[in-house]
Structure formats: structure tokens, C-alpha cells
Design a protein around this nucleic acid. Structure first.
Lengths: 339, 339
DNA sequence: CTGAAAGCGCTAACAA
DNA sequence: TTGTTAGCGCTTTCAG
């Protein structure tokens, strides 16, 4: 099967390739007669234009990159869905890259985006990311990009995030109102914008109630691979039996808390109350049902994509601090925090 | 910032672009002196080659497409993870497309893959897909592709699937062994390979036990959007109080069964036993914990990608029926099927 | 070992 | 309204 290019079409039709090209894009300088013929022939021969030739020529790719830490995660799955939903309407293609929470990988991936491969980038930073030089490069090359969910603080770029601080605050207040005397905050990485904000809100609430002396009494950094989290949580609860309430900063931790409580016959909510930042669909049918702070994951992805396309289309790449959008999460009380 | 191409590099170094190009790919026909200089300059200037120029020239894209029904789904998230894990080692890029279970969208997406945009395609068919003409085109154009999880039956192509029939059989046997007299199978679409095989296994088990006259007594097609599934399931259970056991053919259905049982005070497992095809991480901490048939989702994605790359690399596109690989699922008994 | 030159398939001036 | 032509940035013969 010899390849089917615009040249083949042109020859077949007895027209020049320029005419065919223009007809294919419905240019006004082509007669509708010709257009019809061209379209018909293209249809018949099943012609599909080579996107790379076109990208090379036009210097744009109709493609965006989504760089995120992980895809096997409810939040990110939903966010990708949101992103796709707008990419589809724009006829854009979506390249997915996973950083696996690695700074190195994130940097390399961002670097590849400098090649013209993509017209824009959506990014949720890895937990290891400690410097913004790679983001700076994107900016210098004038490649539109938008942070979603996990931003890099102090770097000016559009950000679509949720109200993490308030929700941390709310979570603490909820636990206190339910009678907790020793609430703890399980963080994954204080390096992460979402975690540090959530824990700051948490701490603020405790302080407001006259609770805190030593921050570390209540905020525990629970780093480690998924495999080790169970052990860490178990250790923590064993060594600190006074803990009677926990805020799980991410979904993964909440599940491990439940696992540990099953394994150690800790009854939730009687002995331990739990509230989790989570988009788990199964929260209502857990044992006990789980009180969640649910992020608008789909909306965050969707909005981030919309902002990105605005930048791509308007070439208005200089949107900065003022374009931080905060989509609020919802606290849904369930049985894991019953008084 | 003027664009940084291989030409700029060449000028900067006082070499020809051909030499630079070869040096960049570590060609043996270039002296190591020159190579070193070129690499250094490329590094310093932060040169990133334009992938589209290269793709156009070489007629290959270093990109694969993954076409699947949905991404906000545990199974597919895990599968994508598996796919990415191998794409990364091959330095391939991954384009994600969602069919949203629509035949039309799937066809269009597959058509776009005919343009040379991708070197290969991984596909899990939509529930609406009823004909294979678009797959035939891929084959005619010699574009390697592999089905994963949801295949198109009677179409010869490599397929990485799980042992759906056996598992359907097993699920039925389990329910019967726990004393169920009226087990039902909740299908989403009998059009789907996975559903029809699972239900066939289910039916076979019942037949073997002398159970069945009318297939439709026990196999219920539960189509509809996620929103309506709750109502459908509720309706079903109300109208058929004799049903004392359910096999949920997909994860989504299992959750709705739980929701319905909560809303209608049906106690699982006493009044209703449930076993679900699912990769839900929260299965052990549901109320009650859910008996699952868990697919090796990551492995399926990974293996599918590996097979695809074998085809891409060996240009051995004619792998057919003999390359169907079956990765077995695991039945994990939990409290939702307690006798 | 290095360089000149052709061309991948398409678009966009510019001419006709 | 249609055609000619010059590249987009890169790879790859083929000559030197």
C-alpha cells in the first residue's frame, strides 16, 4: 500500500496540491465545486492528513501535555477526565506523562515539552519538586502552562486549586467539635503545596482553640512508599495512644488508617475519628462510612484545561497571579466522625 | 528568543548540520572529539530536537495511542499505569483517547491513528462497538495494534485479556455453595466481550447444577448511564425479591448494589450475597467487605504494551490468534458472601 | 571523518 | 479561483 498523501489526491483529481490543501480546510478562495470534489475524493480514498507535516509547517501541534505524579488515583483520574472533556471539544490531543513523584522525571518531561511537541502544559507538581528552573524555561520559551491541584508556591503562573487551607481548618474544627482531645494530621510531604496548606489550616484551628505548643505533636509527616504506609500508621497509633482523631491529607492514607484499625481492632469512630481529603466514591459504603473533604476533581481538570486553551488561543501567556482560581471542596460528614 | 534548531547549533560550532545531526545520535561515523563538542554545545544551549521534523522524516513517531472507554475507573487507571511503565522504558510518548463507550468516537479516533501520528495502538473496545471495519483499516495500513481487556471477538489481533468465562463460572459456584437459590448476574452490556463471557460462565455453572430454564431469569442487562444504574438496581431487587445473590459484572454496579442495599435496608450478606468483578482497593474495608474477582489490571496494561512494542520493533505485525494471552484474575472471598 | 543536497507531507506567500 | 514555489527541522544517501 503506497502512502496516501495530498499529492496522491491532487494527481487523482487533476488539481494542484495547493488547491487540494486549501479545499481541505474549506478556504474561501476555493470554489465550492472544487471543494466538494476534493472532499468526496478524500472521503473515498480515506485520506487522513499527516499531522507531523502540518505541525512542522505551522509550528503548532494541536497537542497538550499533562504531567502528573500518578494516574492510579481517583483524584487524578477524574482530573484527566475533566481535561479530556475540553481537549475533545478543541480537537486537541492529550499526551500523558507520569512523574512518579520524581523531580528528575518531572524536569526531563518538562524539558521535552520545550521542543515544540506541545502547545501547552498542564502540571501537578511532584512531591520532590524543590526548584522552579524547569518552569522558568517553559515561561521563557513562551509555552503556556497551568498548575492544577498541586502548585509550586511563589512561582507566578495560572493555578487551579482548591481551598486547602480552609479545609484543613474545617477538618480540625470538626474533630474538636466531636470531642477529640488529641487530633493528628497525617501529611505525606510537607513539601507539597496541598499538604502544607492543609496542615497550616489544621494547626491554625488548634491554635485558635488554645491547643498547640509544639506543632510536631500534631502534624506527622508520613512519607514513604504505599507499601510502608501501613506500618508507619500502625507504629504511629501504637506509640501515641492518646491520638483520638486523624485528618488524612490524602486518600491513600485514609485507606491505610482503616486497614490499621481493622488489624488492631481500633473502632472508628469511637476510639478514633477520621476525616479524609478524598474523592473516593466508596466513602459512603465503607465501614464505617468515611467523612470526606471532597475536591471538585473533574472541575479542576476542566477549568485548568479551559484556562490553558485561553492562553493558547489568545497567545495571552502572561496571565499570572491574578489567575489563581480556587474551586472549593465540600465537607461531607459521615459516620467516621460521629460523636 | 529565536528558535534553536540544529542549524543554529551547526553554525555555532562551525560544522555542517549533517555532522551535528549524526553526532547527536552518536553515529559511528563521527569522531569522538566532534561528538563531545556537539553534545556540550547542545547541553549548554539547551537544545531539544523538534520531534515533528524527525517524525516526518523518519516516518515514525515514537508515540502510541491508548483508546479506552473511560479513565475514571480503577481498572483502566491501573492499566494505563502498566502501559506507561513500559512506554517510559522505550522512550515512547502516550496519547490517551476516551471513547466514552461510543462507537462513533472510537471509529473516529482509530481513523486518526491512520495518519502516521502513532506507531501503534492499544485498544479496549467501547460497549457500543458492533463492527470491525475500523480495526480492519488499521490492519490494512499495517499499524500494529493490540486489544486489552475488552476485545472484539472474531477479529484476529493480539489480545491481552483475563479468564472471564472461568471467573463467571467460579462466581456462580461460590454463590451456590453459600446457599443462594436465586443468583442473578448483572451485566452492563452483553455486547461487551468481558460481560458476555462472564455471564456465559455464570450460566454454565447454573446449568451444570440443573438450575436454568430461561437464561433471562438470571442474567439482567443493566445498561444506562451511571446516574440511572441506582434506580435500575433498586427496581430489579424490588421486583425480584427472590434474588438472594448477585454477581456484579463490573465495579460500577457493585457500588450501586451497596448503595441500594443501604437505602432499602437490605442486609448483605444475610439477605443478599454479592461478588463483584472489581479492582477496588477499598474492597476490604467496605461494609461489609466485598468479595471480588480482581483482574491483574496493571499486568494487563503492561503486557499489552510489551506485545505492542514487540510488533513495532520487529515489524512483525502479523501476530494473530496465537498471541491471545490470558492473565488470570483472583477470587478473593470476603464478608459479602458469608454463608 | 565531514559536508552537500534531496526530500518527508504540508502550508502559505505570491503569481498567474 | 487555481498553481508554483519555498520552506518548516530533521535524516540520510552520496560525494568529497
Amino acid at each position: 500500500m503506497s502512502k496516501l498523501t495530498i499529492k496522491t489526491l491532487a494527481k487523482e483529481l487533476g488539481l494542484s496540491i495547493a488547491t487540494v490543501s486549501k479545499a481541505l480546510k474549506d478556504s474561501h478562495e476555493i470554489s465550492s465545486e472544487t471543494k466538494k470534489k476534493v472532499l468526496a475524493m478524500a472521503e473515498q480514498l480515506n485520506y487522513v492528513p499527516n499531522p507531523y507535516a502540518s505541525s512542522l509547517r505551522k509550528q503548532k501541534s494541536k497537542t497538550i501535555a499533562v504531567i502528573l505524579p500518578e494516574v492510579a488515583d481517583n483524584f487524578f483520574s477524574l482530573a484527566i477526565n475533566g481535561i479530556q472533556s475540553v481537549a475533545e471539544t478543541k480537537n486537541y490531543h492529550v499526551l500523558i506523562y507520569l512523574s512518579h513523584e520524581s523531580f528528575e522525571i518531572e524536569k526531563n518531561t518538562v524539558n521535552h515539552c520545550l521542543s515544540g511537541r506541545v502547545d501547552g502544559v498542564l502540571l501537578s507538581v511532584s512531591s520532590e519538586t524543590s526548584d522552579a528552573a524547569h518552569f522558568e524555561k517553559l515561561k521563557n520559551e513562551n509555552i503556556p502552562f497551568v498548575f492544577f491541584d498541586r502548585e509550586f508556591e511563589n512561582f507566578a503562573a495560572p493555578k487551579i486549586i482548591t481551598n486547602d487551607y480552609e479545609c484543613g481548618f474545617l477538618a480540625a474544627k470538626l474533630l474538636l467539635s466531636k470531642g477529640c482531645k488529641h487530633p493528628a494530621f497525617l501529611s505525606t510531604s510537607e513539601n507539597l503545596s496541598i499538604c502544607s496548606k492543609r496542615s497550616a489550616g489544621f494547626t491554625a484551628a488548634l491554635t485558635e482553640e488554645g491547643f498547640i505548643k509544639d506543632k510536631h505533636e500534631f502534624v506527622i509527616d508520613c512519607t514513604g512508599t504505599p507499601d510502608t504506609i501501613f506500618d508507619q500508621v500502625q507504629e504511629l497509633l501504637k506509640n501515641n495512644p492518646q491520638i483520638d482523631g486523624i485528618v488524612a491529607s490524602v486518600e491513600r492514607l485514609a485507606m491505610q488508617i482503616y486497614m490499621v484499625s481493622v488489624a488492631n481492632s481500633i473502632t472508628i469512630p469511637k476510639e478514633l475519628k477520621v476525616v479524609a481529603f478524598s474523592t473516593l466514591e466508596t466513602a459512603p459504603i465503607l465501614n464505617p462510612s468515611l467523612t470526606t473533604i471532597t475536591q471538585p476533581a473533574f472541575e479542576i481538570g476542566k477549568t485548568a484545561a479551559e484556562v490553558l486553551f485561553t492562553m493558547i488561543e489568545k497567545k495571552k501567556h502572561n496571565i499570572t497571579a491574578d489567575s489563581v482560581m480556587i474551586l472549593p471542596s465540600t465537607l461531607i460528614e459521615r459516620n467516621s466522625t460521629l460523636a
